[in-house]
Design a protein around this nucleic acid. Structure first.
Lengths: 115, 115
DNA sequence: TCCATATTTTGACTATTATAAAAATAATGA
DNA sequence: TCATTATTTTTATAATAGTCAAAATATGGA
């Protein structure tokens, strides 16, 4: 639950959610590919460098993004597995499957319970 | 996105997430049934009345729970549709389907992208 | 109407979070 | 090595969130 609270807190902020969405759009499944440089995010979202850095650290700390260096740039990339962990927690643990968006697909889940 | 941030903020707190989980366990699909009285939540989670009330208002404001009166008690109940809205937002909009826990079930979603 | 119960609101306080300017660090190329 | 670019860290400040005692409100029953 602590992990979930940390991840939820990380996404529960306008700027950070916008950052994460931008990173999802720039995502590539291949290791070492995809993601955005801090500077690219800063100009795309019009956020002051220090402020952006603060938010990126927050997302990093929550494990929702990973960081790699490419020359002078630090590239940030969304961590799909972490995000999956969060949605899985919300749907399966928190809601016991009763609120999953894709509920009907899962065997053993009552269709009637699917919202 | 504003709605999502509000909902995420509501759940991004130990006590509130615990409240919501308790309400999910006490859920019943029928209108006017299920949920927990404020007092029941307070004793179950050992939270001071005023503090609990503050958190319940937060969840109410986020639309994640609904309230009904039964005699002297106020019964709080999780709103499944709202929770579905949140998970759907995270999976479909925020992640464009790439991080859904139940991803493979949805037609048109690439199996390879499913975590 | 008066009392007891259930819960919320108010108010005061502490803690955490967000912002951004300025200084520090890291990498590259001249 | 020095200048340049990219980014983080430090530091200060402002804003928001969490806690809880005490007072207020709402309901039901004697």
């Amino acid at each position: 639950m602590e992990t979930a609270v940390t991840a939820l807190s990380a996404l529960a902020q306008e700027t950070r959610l916008a950052i994460f969405r931008a990173l999802m759009r720039a995502h590539a499944p291949e290791e070492g590919k995809g993601g955005l440089a801090a500077g690219e995010i800063a100009s795309a979202l019009d956020v002051a460098p220090a402020t952006l850095s603060f938010h990126l650290k927050e997302l990093l700390h929550a494990g929702l993004v990973v960081q790699r260096r490419e020359g002078r740039s630090l590239i940030y990339k969304a961590d799909l597995a972490a995000m999956h962990g969060l949605t899985a927690y919300l749907i399966d643990d928190c809601c016991q499957g009763a609120c999953g968006s894709l509920s009907p697909c899962v065997p053993g889940r009552a269709e009637a319970e699917c919202v």
